[in-house]
């Protein structure tokens, strides 16, 4: 079986393909989420040091991973869009940003929830939390810039430049924050000393990571479809869809 993948780089054919596969990912996300939460909250044993509060890591850790990973993916697609002038890749980047920002926010929020019983305070200037906060700023910068530009082509390119500049800077920022944190030790407790994990905990976590993946893919595909419709609203194929009444 040979599939012409390039066919799907045109917004029109990608639109129909994405429409077909989005439900699959959404379905997988729901199943995995239910399974992961069940393992996390009912199967996994209570941690003897941290009690029940540790269970928040089943949400926190996948969210933190996704937040970082999605930024790189976003910058990658934005960069491809800038280099090869492929509209679809740029739309993809735009679609990824809100999901990435959401995961960053969840990671921060759950980090604070975890910090209260563990450290006795909602917020600790821990290196990871601080880096995560800066990552949220980077996401917000990207989204605000794109929102402020009316011309979509300029928005794509400008967003790509700031995303790439951000990606180059992330390691530097992370390294700086680490250094800053070691200099100002005392206030924070290192998260590195997490106790070794029971197998069920690891399984639960991995399932949750997959759930986040599936969720991200589903949401990003759906959002890309909306962006395609918005941008291509003047074209013949969208008009045709509208006539048939199949625009969902």
């Amino acid at each position: 079986m040979s599939i012409n993948w390039f066919k799907y780089s045109s917004p029109a054919s990608f639109y129909s393909l994405a429409g077909k596969i989005t439900p699959i990912f959404a379905f997988a996300a729901v199943i995995l989420l239910v399974a992961g939460l069940y393992i996390g909250f009912f199967v996994a044993p209570t941690d003897f040091q941290q009690g029940e509060a540790y269970r928040i890591i089943f949400i926190h850790v996948p969210a933190a991973w996704m937040s970082m990973f999605l930024y790189v993916v976003m910058a990658f697609w934005a960069g491809i869009g800038l280099a090869f002038n492929t509209r679809l890749s740029s739309m993809f980047a735009t679609a990824i940003a809100p999901t990435g920002a959401m995961f960053t926010f969840i990671a921060l929020w759950t980090g604070a929830l975890w910090g209260k019983p563990m450290w006795g305070t909602w917020w600790v200037w821990d290196a990871r939390l601080t880096s995560e906060l800066i990552l949220l700023f980077l996401y917000i910068g990207f989204m605000s810039l794109q929102a402020a530009i009316d011309d979509p082509r300029r928005a794509d390119k400008a967003g790509a430049i700031i995303a790439l500049v951000g990606v180059v800077n992330i390691p530097i920022i992370y390294f700086s924050v680490q250094w800053w944190n070691t200099l100002h030790q005392g206030a924070s407790v290192s998260v590195n000393q997490a106790p070794s994990m029971a197998t069920t905990m690891l399984v639960g976590m991995l399932v949750m990571v997959f759930a986040s993946w599936m969720y991200s893919i589903a949401v990003i595909l759906k959002r890309t479809r909306v962006i395609i419709l918005e941008r291509e609203s003047h074209t013949a194929w969208v008009a045709e869809l509208q006539k048939k009444g199949t625009v969902q």
Partner: peptide, 19 residues
């Protein structure tokens, strides 16, 4: 907007300058 874009990128310089 420029402050949103630029200030996070200034952080390393701030850390080491003040540090």
């Amino acid at each position: 907007l420029v402050s949103l874009l630029v200030l996070p990128l200034y952080i390393p310089v701030l850390i080491f300058g003040a540090g």
